[in-house]
Design a protein around this nucleic acid. Structure first.
Lengths: 128, 128
DNA sequence: TTGTTTCGACGAAGGTCTTCGTATAGCATT
DNA sequence: AATGCTATACGAAGACCTTCGTCGAAACAA
């Protein structure tokens, strides 16, 4: 059975975002993608990916000399885990409090708002 | 000129929640409130409150022998900071993605849903 | 073949977080 | 005054996070 994965740290999350965006990547590719916003040493990226492999956050393919890394969980799964975690720790488990705070803290576009409204309708219809 | 406060850590957030709930409290009161869910040493609580005082997360009133601590920021301010932070780090700054994830990851009650809908209406009306 | 580049492994430094033991001072009761 | 309880201060340990330097091996080029 899948042994619960640890919550990714800051630097680990940045790497996951690269892998979600780019797909399976080498250390070099991850380092360069990250470096576009903030320079990072090659061995730093390597070490992080090694640790993430130990933790099970990513899977390593050693078929080629330059190993390939891919995320074990999807963005949705990871984001859901992070949101649930913050919900528990900071909002006493209340989804609505978190949502209200998120919508107030940053103005969303009308398109985004209608997306939210759509989901809201679906959820309201489900209470069979 | 409020000097930006650091993001509270896990243990610090647990303490803030006690202080928001109970108001100004002594170390002993905080320790006992926290201990109801998870036992914690007295000096551990003390040390955390001392560090939080250094960071400016709480304010210490030394008028009595047993010092009183109170939060510097309101729940809303702190929660907003935490949500914005997660929004940036894990959702690329998209409020709607975070909201959708929050609503899907935990079923909210009809009351909560209508609260969200109300805010949604307000926000939609604002686009003058 | 010999030198150069690129790779992964490893260890360690410096920082933060959380916990706790010990020391010390104030205060009350005897 | 002496004892005991409760408070704060301080230091340090152990875990984790992030970064980087060094090493040896593999691939490649001259």
């Amino acid at each position: 059975m899948s042994p619960l994965l640890p919550r990714p740290t800051n630097a680990e999350l940045a790497i996951l975002r690269v892998l979600w965006e780019e797909g399976s990547s080498t250390v070099r590719q991850v380092q360069e993608a990250l470096g576009r916003s903030q320079p990072i040493g090659y061995t730093t990226a390597l070490k992080l990916l090694q640790i993430m492999t130990e933790k099970g956050l990513v899977v390593r393919d050693e078929a080629q000399r330059a190993h390939l890394y891919r995320p074990r969980l999807s963005p949705d799964e990871t984001q859901g885990q992070l949101v649930s975690d913050l919900m528990e720790r900071a909002f006493g488990g209340s989804a609505s409090k978190l949502v209200l705070r998120a919508l107030s803290s940053k103005p969303a576009s009308p398109d985004e708002l209608s997306e939210v409204r759509k989901l809201l309708d679906e959820l309201a219809g489900e209470k069979s």
